[in-house]
Simulated assay, not measured.
Amino acid sequence: MAFKRELFEVIAQLKSVGREVFDELLKPERLGRIKELAAKEEEYLPPPTLPEEK
Rank of each mutant, 00 (worst) to 15 (best):
D23T: 11
V17L: 10
R19N: 13
E29Q: 14
L14F: 01
L45H: 14
A39P: 03
E43A: 09
G18Y: 02
F22M: 09
L25Q: 00
E24Y: 06
Y44Q: 12
F3N: 03
V21P: 01
G18P: 01
F3Q: 09
A38V: 03
E41T: 04
V21D: 01
K54E: 07
L14M: 06
L50H: 07
E36M: 08
V17R: 12
P28K: 07
R33K: 12
R19V: 13
T49C: 13
P47E: 10
L25K: 00
M1E: 10
G32R: 11
Q13F: 13
G18I: 01
E24N: 06
A38F: 04
K54I: 05
E20I: 06
A12D: 14
L25E: 00
L31H: 00
V21L: 02
K15N: 13
G18R: 09
I34K: 00
D23L: 14
L7N: 03
P46I: 02
G18V: 01
V10P: 00
E36H: 09
E6K: 15
L45C: 11
E53N: 10
E53S: 13
S16E: 03
E41Q: 08
E53I: 12
K15C: 04
L26A: 11
A38N: 04
K27P: 00
V21K: 01
E6A: 10
L26Q: 07
E29N: 12
P28T: 03
K54G: 05
E41W: 02
E52T: 13
L14A: 06
R33T: 06
I11Q: 08
K4Y: 08
L37P: 00
K54M: 04
L26S: 07
P28F: 03
K54N: 06
Y44H: 14
I11N: 01
P47W: 05
E24K: 14
F3E: 06
I34P: 00
P28Q: 04
Y44M: 13
K4G: 09
E6C: 09
E20L: 06
K35H: 08
K54T: 06
S16L: 02
R19W: 08
K27E: 05
A2K: 05
E6N: 09
L37H: 05
L31S: 00
M1S: 15
P48S: 06
L45Q: 12
V17K: 13
M1C: 12
S16N: 06
E53Y: 11
F8I: 11
K35F: 10
E42C: 01
K27S: 05
L25A: 02
P48Y: 02
G18N: 07
L37C: 05
A2S: 14
V10C: 05
L45S: 13
F22E: 02
E20W: 02
E9I: 12
G32K: 14
R30D: 01
E52Y: 11
P28N: 03
E20T: 10
A12P: 03
A39W: 09
E24Q: 10
L25V: 01
E20N: 15
P47I: 07
Y44V: 11
E43L: 15
E9L: 15
L45P: 05
P28D: 05
R19F: 07
L14N: 03
P47K: 08
E43I: 12
E24H: 10
S16D: 04
R19L: 14
G18E: 10
P48Q: 05
L50Y: 08
L14H: 04
